[in-house]
Write a protein that binds this DNA or RNA. Sequence first.
DNA 1: CTGCATCCGGAATGATACTG
DNA 2: CAGTATCATTCCGGATGCAG
Lengths: 93, 93
Amino acid sequence: MSDLAAALEVVGARWALRIVERLLDAPQRYGDVQRDLGVPTNMLATWLRELEEAGVLVRLPLRHNTRAYTLTERGLALREAIEALAKWGAAGE
Amino acid sequence: MSDLAAALEVVGARWALRIVERLLDAPQRYGDVQRDLGVPTNMLATWLRELEEAGVLVRLPLRHNTRAYTLTERGLALREAIEALAKWGAAGE
DNA sequence: CTGCATCCGGAATGATACTG
DNA sequence: CAGTATCATTCCGGATGCAG
């Protein structure tokens, strides 16, 4: 399998890159991501789990039954790809 | 909509980026892409059309009822994003 | 023989109600 | 707040057919 295909296996689904982008600058809670992104709650739960298993992010417990989703080094390494894609999208207007 | 979401609207489907990657270095014919990529024939037809409408590639008629699919400037501008993603995928082994 | 279109089952995604 | 359960919808992929 090509390197590109390997990457898309992990972050190629509809919401994966958008979730990661949302976490690039700071950890976020579940509800923050859901509201800001407009992602269906079951899809968010599904992909947060997938991305955690892929080592892209980790779930840090806060107080009061809340968690902070934080990118790992591997997740932060997606910044270049995300910014390149966003730049391409911006040029398409 | 964010720039990233705009980009993913065009190249976020399962095969879009792989097709573009295959065309980065040289134009390819339909059958070449299909065999090398292992993409189902109906999906290839669908996404070649979508990508053509999005201005990412053009279809140049060759002789003998074949066509050469060639990236436009806009399509070639995806190289940075594709290489960044491939690099990330390669680092994940 | 290459480049598709169509049909159809299964997988992915989405809306929404409900729970710890 | 942070999810799960359920069901509808939409997308994807393999088989097949057919035209240039």
